[in-house]
Simulated assay, not measured.
Amino acid sequence: MSMNGEYLRVTPAELDRALKDPAWALDLAEEIQDAEEEHEPAPNGARHFTTHQTWDLLGFLLRRSAFPVDIVHGEEPLAADDWGYGPPQYLTPDRVRLAADTLHQTTYDQLIQGVDPSELTEAEIYPRIWDSSTSLEWARDLFTPLTEFFQGAASTGHAMLIWLD
Rank of each mutant, 00 (worst) to 15 (best):
I71T: 04
I71F: 07
V72N: 11
G74W: 01
G74A: 05
G74Q: 03
G74I: 03
E75Q: 14
E75N: 12
E76C: 05
E76H: 11
P77I: 04
P77M: 09
P77C: 06
L78Y: 02
A79P: 08
A80M: 01
D81G: 05
D81N: 02
W83R: 11
G84E: 02
Y85G: 03
Q89D: 03
Q89V: 01
Y90R: 06
Y90G: 07
Y90A: 07
Y90T: 03
P93S: 04
D94I: 00
V96C: 04
V96E: 04
R97F: 01
R97C: 05
R97W: 01
L98R: 09
A99T: 07
A99K: 09
A100G: 07
D101T: 15
D101Q: 15
L103I: 06
H104N: 11
T106Y: 09
T107L: 08
Y108Q: 04
Y108G: 14
D109Y: 01
Q110Y: 00
L111F: 05
I112W: 04
Q113Y: 05
Q113H: 12
G114Y: 08
G114D: 08
V115F: 12
D116T: 11
D116Y: 13
P117L: 03
E119N: 13
E119F: 13
E119I: 13
L120H: 08
L120C: 08
E122S: 15
A123M: 13
E124N: 15
E124F: 14
I125L: 09
I125F: 11
Y126R: 14
P127I: 01
R128L: 13
I129N: 11
W130Y: 07
W130E: 03
W130I: 00
S133H: 12
S133C: 03
T134Y: 05
S135V: 00
S135W: 00
L136Q: 15
A139R: 11
R140A: 09
L142G: 01
F143D: 07
F143I: 08
